[in-house]
């Protein structure tokens, strides 16, 4: 099989494709930024799960962890980076193309 004949979808981003991370990125895509409690409540992830997946997304450069203080307490918000937003857009387009031509 030549490279031209490879099935579509082989270039799908596996960082985003993992269901838990897909849910996380989808939540961050529709808002400007959110904290950990918000993400835990909306995804039903445990603290450990969330931490692990956010670390992977941060390593890929898809999320940015922004730390500041609210009063004297440290407060951390998570934000999708421009690269993360772009990656999610690409993923959406690829999945739409991949699934659009399926026979009934």
């Amino acid at each position: 099989m030549t490279r031209d004949r490879e099935p579509r979808g082989v270039e799908i981003d596996r960082v985003i494709h993992e269901p838990a991370r897909l849910l996380l990125v989808a939540h961050l895509y529709v808002v400007e930024s959110a904290d950990y409690v918000f993400l835990m409540q909306n995804t039903d992830f445990t603290w450990g799960n969330l931490s692990s997946h956010l670390s992977k997304l941060e390593e890929a450069g898809y999320v940015e962890i922004v730390k500041d203080f609210v009063g004297r307490k440290p407060h951390t918000m998570v934000k999708l980076t421009a690269a993360g937003r772009q990656a999610f857009d690409t993923y959406r387009r690829q999945m739409q193309e991949l699934l659009a031509d399926l026979p009934e």
């Binding site: 808002v31 400007e32 959110a34 409690v37 407060h75 918000m77």
Partner: peptide, 11 residues
Amino acid sequence: APRLGAVKFAP
């Protein structure tokens, strides 16, 4: 707030 967390909504 401690139950729902904080979020900045889209523009």
